[in-house]
């Protein structure tokens, strides 16, 4: 599952724009992930982040 490193995230929304499932949303300065929508393990958001704030953790 996606883990968002809050101390690294710059809340820019780059990941939101590329998520094919629409699982990510930027609520003001708080990035959220809807785990019921995120299920392809595509990890696109992890790649695109300019800061490295998104990490994938096997559950």
């Amino acid at each position: 599952m996606i883990h968002i490193r809050r101390d690294v995230c710059g809340y820019c929304g780059a990941c939101v724009s590329v998520c094919p499932r629409g699982a990510l949303e930027l609520i003001d300065a708080y990035l959220t992930v809807d785990e019921t929508l995120c299920k392809d393990k595509c990890k696109i958001c992890q790649m695109v982040c300019p800061l490295g704030a998104i990490v994938w953790e096997e559950k």
Binding site: A14, S17, V18, G22, I44
Partner: peptide, 18 residues
């Protein structure tokens, strides 16, 4: 903006290719 959600919720595919 770039993190647009509204159009997607309304059924328009707004996903940007990586």
């Amino acid at each position: 903006g770039v993190e647009s959600k509204f159009a997607k919720w309304a059924g328009i595919n707004t996903t940007v290719p990586l």
